[in-house]
Amino acid sequence: MKFLVLISNVPDTTTKIRFVDDNKTFDTTGVQWIINPWDELALTRAVELKEAGGIEKITVANVGESITEATLRKALAVGADDAIRIDAKPKDAFYVATQLAEVAKDYDVVMVGIEASDYNGSAVGGMLAEILGFNSVSAVSGMNIENGQLSLTREIDGGQQKIEVETPVVTIVQKGIAIDPRIPAMRGIMMARKKPLTVVPAVDAEEKTEYISFELPPPKAACKLVDEDNVKELVRLLQEEAKVL
């Protein structure tokens, strides 16, 4: 079984977010890039399954410019066998899915994080399955392979659903798919340099989104202290200002 794990290159989760160009562009100055945490969990599970003998090969792929190669090298260090970088600036979910469809068609299982921690679009996985005509399963929190059969666990309201699915399939995975992202061992880090990283040109694809502007959330309001005898005022604040009652 051949696995493709999609890797989104995102700013470190502690990055201070700033916008430039009239608030239309994210300012990447000084940003440290990481593997999208959900993709990292997906990759960790794929590596675990490969170690258990259920997977023939793991490829990682992304759509990005050369700056994203460090992120792909880390994925190789964690345990992917090879990497593909589609040489383009990711524009929107449809653009990214169209590019990925070109390389994903030869794989049995595609794993993609439920969302990327930068734009939180949650759209690429579903679009990719649609373009390729693959099965797709969302909210996957567990994955196993037994006797060549892929079995998945999905999170549903109040419980879990166990399903078996035919390949090829796009699995959209979330928290639970692996416990902690795998820390690459030094042997893996050294081997990553020698593993193949193929750069492929982008295909023409329509850009369907225009970004009008970005806005930062308002700064946190100061903490309000209510006198301990004044329960009425507390209830009023919770109702009218916090709107939680």
Partner: peptide, 18 residues
């Protein structure tokens, strides 16, 4: 180098997480 940065990150991840 990329390798040096990855090692630093691996040490940081292990230290902070474990």
């Amino acid at each position: 180098t990329d390798e040096q940065l990855m090692i630093r990150q691996a040490a940081k991840d292990y230290a902070e997480r474990e």
